[in-house]
């Protein structure tokens, strides 16, 4: 599917559907937060996921990671990991299987570092809580390994004896990256890991994520709404709109030749230093996922909307080699 044809996909997501289902006072409400998403993440690559708030990015990764709590339900499709053969989604595997792969094979870097680190315990104990049982060995061996790993993420080992509040936001985020990478997992999910950071710190942290990823050869699913970060970091990029993937392909290709009207708008509306050209926002508002528009969910805001867009959902079609788009205007005559 992608340019890296020889690579084995670490993650294969097929037609994944995850809905929020609530029943209150006899009223059933269903929010289709992820609706038919298909993509693959190859070994040793950073796959970016872009989209605005409430486009379903976080729900998608939660479903992939098996972090399903009611009212979120995985309704259909599959999300297979190469290190979890025999199960078509983590959420469907029994708890002991999930415990065995968590952190060892699959880890998570979250947005708020303060929510990950225990504020009452020194950083050293957070490492013990998270990783000791996965790595095993004696306490001395484990501590030595943590210190070695801290040096890899350019943190002074003295940080281990600090409390989280004593560290700056950038340092804390480095600590959570160190936590997520100490077991050398095959797959890391990074959900807006640099959004809360300053631009200068962000650039450092992104550089570090890339360096660690290269060193370990793992794959990262990287989520952010910041197109500048995607342009700099990711190898391939998927664009989400209202719970569906509308375009994906190699990142430089998406930026140089965006095909979907939404992607085109996202890239064209970015202001740039040194360029005073007038840039417009998009009219209308993102759709309500409890009652999404029929057909293509972008059609009420789309400059290229045609009658067919209001009734038929456009299929995700490989328009150019390794570059898929779901749009009737780009792929005439294709429908699901």
């Amino acid at each position: 599917m992608s340019g890296a044809g020889d690579a084995v996909p670490v993650l294969q997501v097929r037609d994944l559907q995850a809905h929020f289902r609530t029943h209150y006072f006899g009223v059933n409400r269903e929010v289709r937060a992820v609706d038919g998403v298909t993509f693959e993440v190859n070994r040793n690559e950073i796959y970016g996921l872009a989209g605005e708030s409430s486009s379903g990015k976080t729900t998608l990764v939660k479903t992939i990671a098996g972090l399903l709590k009611p009212p979120l339900e995985m309704v259909g499709g599959s999300a297979r990991f190469s290190f979890l053969p025999g199960w078509d989604a983590i959420g469907r595997a029994p708890p002991e299987v999930v415990r065995a792969i968590r952190w060892r094979h699959l880890s998570y870097i979250m947005q708020g570092s303060m929510n990950v680190l225990n504020p009452l315990r020194r950083v050293r104990y957070s490492f013990r809580d998270f990783a000791w049982r996965h790595l095993g060995g004696s306490k001395v061996e484990f501590d030595a390994r943590v210190v070695a790993h801290m040096e890899r993420v350019k943190l002074d080992p003295s940080v281990l004896d600090a409390y989280p509040h004593e560290l700056s936001g950038g340092m804390r985020q480095r600590v959570t990256i160190a936590l997520a990478t100490i077991c050398k997992p095959d797959f890391i999910i990074a959900d807006e890991p640099t959004t809360a950071l300053d631009v200068v710190v962000q650039k450092d942290v992104l550089g570090m994520i890339r360096a660690i990823q290269c060193e370990m050869g793992s794959s990262i699913l990287f989520i952010t709404h910041d197109m500048g970060v995607h342009a700099a970091l990711t190898d391939r990029l998927g664009i989400m709109y209202a719970g569906r993937l509308v375009e994906d392909g190699e990142t430089p290709e998406i930026f140089s030749r965006p095909l979907h009207p939404y992607t085109r708008h996202l890239i064209a509306s970015l202001p740039r230093i040194g360029d005073t050209e007038q840039r417009e926002g998009l009219d209308g508002t993102p759709p309500n996922l409890a009652a999404p528009p029929p057909g293509c969910r972008f059609h009420p805001r789309c400059p290229l909307a045609m009658p067919v867009c209001t009734t038929i959902v456009p299929a995700m079609v490989e328009t150019l080699p390794g570059h898929r788009v779901a749009c009737h205007a780009v792929n005439p005559g294709m429908a699901t």
């Binding site: 631009v199 962000q202 197109m227 500048g228 342009a231 700099a232 970091l233 890239i267 970015l270 740039r272």
Partner: peptide, 12 residues
């Protein structure tokens, strides 16, 4: 220099 834009991404 830390601002990441599609244009400056090449350097990063």
């Amino acid at each position: 220099d830390a601002v990441l834009t599609p244009d400056s991404a090449g350097a990063f």
